[in-house]
């Protein structure tokens, strides 16, 4: 059984947020949901100002607070390390969201009326722009069931009243592909691989680079390692946060 982990090289990230777009397209997430998010930080005062970037996927913790508190076992950790949500079991109590210190959970406050895929064929705007020729599209992999229990965990399922979050693109990982954010980064900030394999790229990177994990002091044991940088201090200011505010 592999032990999946992700490394994020902070010295390479330039804050283009291409990973966020890749994630939205791959997982068809509704408006204002960012399963992958990139903080843009500003530190110190002019003229010493420093701007830096910190991508924030789900940390897929080994001691995940969200898994511990889920009352029905809808949020669970697979043996290969992926922390997933069973969209058909979730009752929508949002306890996982409250327990998670990273803020990676997004609740479906309504049925999404705008999504990244064109699976909403009755949208008149899509119809008029494409002269009714664009076929509806839906990633077929996201409809499959994964894991020994065959639970419905892949993204692109956006039922009203259930929680959703980064799945490490389980439907791609199961096919041997990298998560969408990893594959789409123009400067290779992310690496994804097996910690148990000493020759995997994440094992090599972790051997040769200084690294930290986000909010390690909370005892969550995250599976996402940040290379070449420092955790954000409480003094950093977030600049250019996403607009997505109250729409849900």
């Amino acid at each position: 059984m592999p032990r999946y982990a992700m490394t994020i090289d902070l010295s390479r990230c330039m804050g283009c947020r291409a990973c966020m777009v890749a994630c939205k397209v791959e997982n068809n997430t509704p408006e204002a949901h960012f399963w992958m998010y990139v903080f843009r930080f500003e530190e110190e005062e002019y003229p010493k100002t420093r701007v830096w970037f910190l991508p924030r996927p789900c940390q897929h913790c080994d001691n995940a607070p969200c898994v511990k508190v889920c009352p029905v076992g809808a949020r669970y950790k697979r043996d290969d390390g992926l922390v997933l949500t069973d969209f058909q079991r979730c009752i929508g109590c949002r306890y996982c969201e409250v327990a998670c210190p990273y803020g990676v959970n997004y609740f479906h406050w309504k049925h999404p009326d705008k999504a990244q895929y064109l699976d909403y064929t009755d949208d008149p705007e899509v119809k008029s722009r494409t002269n009714n020729t664009m076929p509806p599209y839906r990633n077929p992999d996201a409809d499959l069931r994964y894991g020994p229990e065959e639970r419905l965990t892949a993204g692109a399922h956006h039922y009203r009243g259930v929680i959703g979050k980064c799945t490490f693109c389980v439907h791609r990982v199961e096919k041997g592909l990298e998560p969408a954010c990893v594959a789409n980064c123009p400067v290779r900030v992310f690496e994804f691989g097996d910690l148990d394999d000493p020759n995997s790229i994440v094992s090599q990177k972790l051997r040769t680079n200084p690294h930290f994990r986000l909010l390690e002091e909370e005892g969550t044991k995250p599976r996402v390692y940040y290379l070449m940088g420092n955790p954000p201090s409480p003094e950093v200011r977030q600049v250019m946060p996403v607009k997505g505010g109250k729409r849900g």
């Binding site: 080994d62 001691n63 898994v67 076992g73 669970y76 950790k77 697979r78 043996d79 894991g147 020994p148 229990e149």
Partner: peptide, 9 residues
């Protein structure tokens, strides 16, 4: 104890 087997009763 954290195995996915134990996410169910």
């Amino acid at each position: 104890p954290e195995s996915e087997k134990f996410s169910n009763p």
